[in-house]
Amino acid sequence: MPERIMPGGVMSGVIEAVISLLLVAGGIFVFIGSLGMAHLRDFYMRLHGPTKATTLGIGCMLIASMMYFWSVDGKPDIQELLITLFLFITAPVSAHLLAKSGLHLRLKHADKTQGKPVELRPEEVGDKPVPHPDKGHG
């Protein structure tokens, strides 16, 4: 990789240290998220890793990239911020839908996992379809 040269000279040491720290932290968080998904015993446990750790990791990496291009070009860019915002908004939605589909299929769970399908309302498990608001009940 070539030496990084800014328009005003070599990149300042503090900014480079912060960018490197954010990059490595993001990599570690992404790794931990995938490790949790590959290693834990139960689907409801496995859901925790990617939804929280991976989202934080990718946020760290995108902020590092934004700081890098800001310090090279001299002006901030909105693209990375847009990707970060989109991922942070969509990750809980997809996790909620995945948890609902896991409850609907009545997947096996470890003994310590709380909130079993028997304890939940039928709409939450998905046994009884929730009525469409336009069509009324039935």
């Binding site: 990789m1 990084r4 990149m11 480079e16 960018i19 490197s20 720290l21 990059l23 490595v24 993001g26 990599g27 990496m61 890098y68």
Partner: peptide
């Protein structure tokens, strides 16, 4: 930065 990039 290049070392951090390799690790990541």
């Amino acid at each position: 930065l290049s070392i951090a990039l390799y690790i990541t």
